[in-house]
């Protein structure tokens, strides 16, 4: 059985200068929901654009269900569908007409067209507005229409670049519920990028984190979180007190799996907090540090991201950028 996506040592250099991808290795199983996480400029969109045959890689190979994306581009395009990050529907015609144009481009037979279009509209909860101009839709409705376009051809794999960016939590939930139903029904593979950690955590079967053009972590959400240790103990310290030497000393302790610092809080990852907390407290005291507050949590995907990328995912600024851009494009 072929992988849905197979990427071997993929490199993409723009204009001979900017290295967007630097030897990406990746396999995605058929029927999986796969999330690609990474900070801005990590290479997420470049990877998607190579996989969807829009760009040619500088080196390395990529396959969709065993078909090479460069040599068999035409065949690959028959298997995939794609929702770009930017708005990708015509706003001066209706939602139904948008779908009709795509149905015709994809050669959906004329006697099935109406039925299939109504079906995806129903799927995405857009039946009541299907004859309205897209210009009058809300941001969430436009995103759902874009995904409806991608569902139209019953692809084997869907590439969704930030499918829910800028949507409110309720709208995001609706999108994912509909995608879930569609996946169950047709066994489609879903390959998506997102800025929302909770989304990857909840909906992805498998996650990869990309940073500076390389895959730096890979696994299920549980695996990734577990790799940090079973629990995380956070100590609130004065910022000035957190020195690199402290890190090294802490890491020497056998039960410490990892140490991360964020906003004056020292996060120590351990397998079992109960048995190690007092030792850690004593250690910090012996270093002459006064601990303000202590809390014990389970590691989150955010922590995994922080460990591999060095920063948290900068959601806010980024999302408002994209929302603004989509809004401007909509107004034309």
């Amino acid at each position: 059985m072929d992988f849905a996506v197979q990427v071997k040592n993929l490199v993409k250099v723009y204009d001979g200068k900017v290295k967007a991808l630097d030897g990406v290795e990746l396999d995605v199983e058929p029927g999986e929901v796969f999330a690609l996480l990474g900070p801005n400029g990590a290479g997420k969109t470049t990877l998607i654009r190579i996989l969807t045959t829009q760009l040619k890689p500088t080196a390395g190979e990529a396959y969709i269900f065993g078909l090479n994306v460069v040599r068999n581009g035409g065949k690959v395009r028959r298997l995939i569908s794609y929702v770009p990050q930017e708005m990708s529907v015509w706003t001066d015609i209706s939602g139904y007409e948008n779908l009709l144009v795509y149905a015709k481009i994809f050669d959906v037979p004329s006697h099935e067209r109406g039925k299939i279009i109504d079906e995806v509209l129903e799927n995405m909860g857009l039946t009541h507005v299907k004859n309205d101009l897209v210009r009058t839709y809300s941001g969430g409705m436009i995103r759902r229409l874009e995904i409806a376009c991608a569902m139209l051809t019953k692809p084997k794999i869907m590439f969704l670049d930030e499918p829910t960016i800028g949507l409110d939590p309720a709208a995001r939930k609706v999108v994912w519920e509909r995608l879930g139903v569609f996946k169950e029904e047709y066994g489609v593979t879903i390959f998506f990028t997102t800025h929302y950690m909770d989304e990857a955590d909840l909906y992805a079967d498998d996650i990869a984190i990309i940073n500076q053009g390389k895959i730096v972590a890979r696994g299920t959400s549980e695996d990734l979180k577990h790799s940090l240790g079973g629990e995380v103990i956070s100590f609130t310290l004065e910022k000035a007190a957190i020195k690199p030497e402290l890190f090294q000393e802490l890491r020497k302790l056998v039960f410490v799996k990892d140490v991360l610092v964020e906003n004056g809080s020292l996060n120590v990852f351990v397998d079992d907090a109960e048995s190690t907390l007092s030792i850690l407290m004593n250690f910090l005291k012996s270093e002459g540090l006064s601990v303000g507050k202590v809390s014990i949590n389970k590691p989150t995907l955010d922590d995994v991201f922080l460990k591999h990328v060095g920063t948290r995912l900068e959601e806010k600024g980024r999302i408002s950028d994209v929302t603004q851009m989509r809004y401007m494009i909509r107004r034309g």
Binding site: T52, Y82, P84, I329
Partner: peptide, 18 residues
């Protein structure tokens, strides 16, 4: 140019249409 700024052209180029 507008369709390029939006994602429409990208999406059209990912269809089987030559």
């Amino acid at each position: 140019v507008w369709e390029r700024e939006s994602g429409i052209l990208k999406k059209l180029l990912v269809t089987p249409a030559s």
